[in-house]
Simulated assay, not measured.
Amino acid sequence: MVLLAETGARLAEIVGLRRVDCYVEASTPYIHIIAHASRSIKTAHSERKVPLTPRALQGLQRALKLSEGDAYVFPRYTSDEGCKATHASNTLNDWLKSRKIAPTAHGMRHGMRDLLRAAEAPQDIVEQLQGWGKVSQSSKYGAGHSLETLLRWLSKAVV
């Protein structure tokens, strides 16, 4: 749940993570959202590196420990046969409803957009974090923002 809430990633991007997509020992820990045989990504812009806030890192480390010995971080929902993001969505949405929490799992992605807006994050930061297409021609040039810069904006958003 915290990975969804504090990365703004799509549910399929999170439940489809492979262990090799997780860089918890990096100087700025991050997940690499990339297409692979068991889970595609929505668009070409969706491939990206998303830094982890301290809570997201803690959640990922726990998930990695629980899935030790498996290639996938969430083997209940992803295997070599594919990613069952709809199953994960149904499970999470039922859990949210049982606790009378209004947003859906996908609503957390929209919530992160609102948090980034409230933190006055520049549009190109938002686009890079959430894997959206570039709005302006000039934002298409260069390598994009560093993980440190992206983490600074995520941290401002989730205070």
Rank of each mutant, 00 (worst) to 15 (best):
M1P: 00
V2Q: 14
V2M: 15
L3K: 07
L3V: 04
L4G: 04
L4H: 12
T7S: 05
T7Y: 03
G8C: 06
A12L: 01
A12P: 00
A12G: 02
E13N: 03
V15C: 01
R19N: 04
V20T: 12
D21I: 02
Y23E: 14
Y23D: 13
V24T: 15
E25S: 14
A26I: 09
T28C: 08
Y30V: 01
I31G: 01
I33T: 06
A35Q: 15
H36F: 08
A37F: 00
S38V: 02
S38A: 15
S40E: 10
S40T: 12
T43C: 06
A44E: 14
S46I: 08
E47V: 08
E47R: 14
E47C: 10
R48W: 00
R48Q: 08
K49Q: 13
V50I: 15
P54K: 08
A56H: 14
L57G: 01
Q58L: 13
G59Y: 04
G59T: 07
A63T: 10
L64G: 07
L64Y: 11
L64F: 10
L66H: 14
G69H: 04
A71W: 01
A71I: 03
A71C: 05
F74M: 02
F74D: 00
F74A: 04
P75Y: 04
P75L: 06
P75K: 05
P75S: 09
P75F: 05
T78Q: 09
T78R: 03
E81P: 01
G82Q: 05
G82F: 09
C83E: 01
C83G: 04
T86Q: 15
H87C: 06
A88G: 01
S89K: 10
N90R: 11
N90T: 05
T91Q: 11
L92K: 14
L92Y: 07
N93Y: 12
N93M: 07
D94H: 10
L96F: 15
L96I: 10
K97P: 05
R99T: 04
I101T: 10
I101P: 03
A102L: 15
P103A: 03
P103W: 04
A105W: 13
H106T: 04
H106G: 08
H106V: 13
G107C: 12
M108K: 11
R109E: 08
R109Q: 10
H110G: 11
H110F: 09
G111N: 12
G111T: 12
R113N: 09
R113D: 00
L116V: 00
L116K: 00
A119E: 02
A121L: 07
Q123T: 12
E127N: 09
Q128E: 15
G131C: 10
G131H: 09
W132L: 09
W132Q: 14
W132A: 02
G133F: 14
K134T: 11
V135T: 15
V135H: 12
S136M: 03
S139Y: 07
S139Q: 15
K140P: 08
K140H: 13
Y141W: 05
G142C: 04
G142F: 04
G144Q: 03
G144L: 05
S146V: 08
E148M: 11
T149I: 13
L150Y: 00
L151S: 00
L151Q: 03
R152E: 14
W153P: 02
W153V: 07
L154T: 02
S155R: 13
S155H: 02
K156C: 06
K156M: 12
K156Y: 07
K156G: 05
A157H: 03
V159R: 10
